[in-house]
Write a protein that binds this DNA or RNA. Sequence first.
RNA 1: UGACCUAUGGUGUAACGGUAACACAGCAGAUUUUGAUUCUGCUUUUCCAGGUUCGAAUCCUGGUAGGUCAACCA
Length: 551
Amino acid sequence: MAEEKSLNFIEEIIEKDIKDGKHTTIATRFPPEPNGYLHLGHAKSIALNFGLALKYGGKTNLRFDDTNPVTEETEYVESIKGDVKWLGFSWAQELYASDYFDQLFSYAVRLINKGLAYVDDSTSEEIANQKGTPTQAGSNSTFRNRSIEENLQLFMDMRAGKYKDGEKVLRAKIDMAHINMLMRDPILYRIKHAHHHRTGDAWCIYPMYDFAHGQSDSIENITHSICTLEFVSHRELYDWFIEKLEIYPSRQYEFARLNMTYTMMSKRKLLQLVNDKHVNGWDDPRMPTLSGVRRRGYTPEAILDFCDRIGVAKRDNLIDIGLLEFCVRDHLNKIANRRMVVFDPLKVVITNYDERLTEQLPSENNPEAAENGIRTMPFGRELWIEQEDFMEVPPKKYFRLAPGQMVRLKSAYIIKCEEVIKDINGKVLELRCTYIPESKSGSDTSGIQVKGVIHWVHAQSALPVEVRLYDRLFTTEDMGSIEDDFTNHLNPTSLEVKTVYAEPALAHAKVEECFQFLRMGYFCMDPDSNTKKLVFNRTVTLRDMWAKAGK
RNA sequence: UGACCUAUGGUGUAACGGUAACACAGCAGAUUUUGAUUCUGCUUUUCCAGGUUCGAAUCCUGGUAGGUCAACCA
């Protein structure tokens, strides 16, 4: 019963192209600039580009847009490749815009020969002034009418390193009065005596984005070049180069980038968070980077499901981060094994339980996945329960522990609170309880029905572990609308670290393994863990209707 | 004060001239040895004004609102 899923606007274009015979197969590309780590916005683009190729039997190239040597590094290339693979995609070819530097150079020469490009000695301020404004036409550069021969010679000299950075640029000769600012003689090449992460010192001139991207698409025979909305006005230039150069006509289509509540997705600002140590690196679990959410415990399946649910369209959007959390809970609920961990311990002494005795009680690893089997938990006279699970004066409908009340210890026995031990300040130190021997989980003959079920750990065998409790990084819902410094909106309590008490089975956890700590949330073992100390990151809390009700 | 893009519940997305639907969120209930999960039900929607049409979210015109564009960034 495959439910017919409606097509997004790009799929409609592709299906029409195939139906019309324009293409028999498609080729897309994912074109990151290696100047930062990939984030959830990129995941949307990756899912789209690779997903389309998979759906229509085409291919997707991974192409690094590395035309600016001063910001780009090999470290970023490696992280990007790792992230794409982690999401589960395989690229047809690993390519670099820098692979095409020779080709791009000859394209520039072709344009010069056609009288469509010229070398300009103007300073960057002069060029900016010549641009005009959106409502005001620009003016021609005084160098605009150099001869083809002179332009050719000058361009060769630029390449040969005769000039310093900023001394000259190569510009397209289009129309300084064009209504589209990008068509006002855009810069094609600039001089940068900088070391490139791949081409080393072979070049001292580098093409601009507009002169590299479309041509790279064309060289690779990309049929559908998909990018975000801010490139809409670049399309006219993209098409101009294809037309004047008479090369394979790739076509550009634009979709709305992902925006998410309480999140900021700008590589520049994420870099600042890292550099200014507001977070502990690109893979800090609070970061919206793929390496961050991975370390946080998000699964590729959850992220891809999220990308699928948010859809692809052309209007600006602000997705509720709650949807991402829904997706990860939905997946983790199915795959994560359960463990009991007490965060704020309150001692419980079972007065009628033999202190020399310890039982090993079985408990299912995951009620949603019986095949995951069971593990056993030690049970004895002294236990830890959650402070939250006891109230001396409970409100109505509180069905946890209170004086004289009964509660079920998950996978163990029903206990009754007989006595509350307090210090001189009235602080509750310990609970004296009795257990009902016939109420043993799995063989309960007591006939007692209790509404409350709580988690617990055996005091003597409890394993102290560190948990890192994350909250949203920013306190403002729409970070795109702020006008002051974004660091003013950082959440000061986005990380809380504490030591908690876990059942012994957690000792066998592996790095990146996800668990549901019963009633506390989903957690994932952090790579900081070692044999002396285990560390778990809280991926997301559980949905909690009781907390929501305000107790 | 120009050009371009966009406008559907709280948030997203669909409906392709035939009488607005799906998901998340919210609310209510059932089940539950996780106040989780699961299940059931409910609330809430076509930016405005004209026009075309038997019929408009959809087509046309004009407004309005939001976004984008003046880096030797991508």
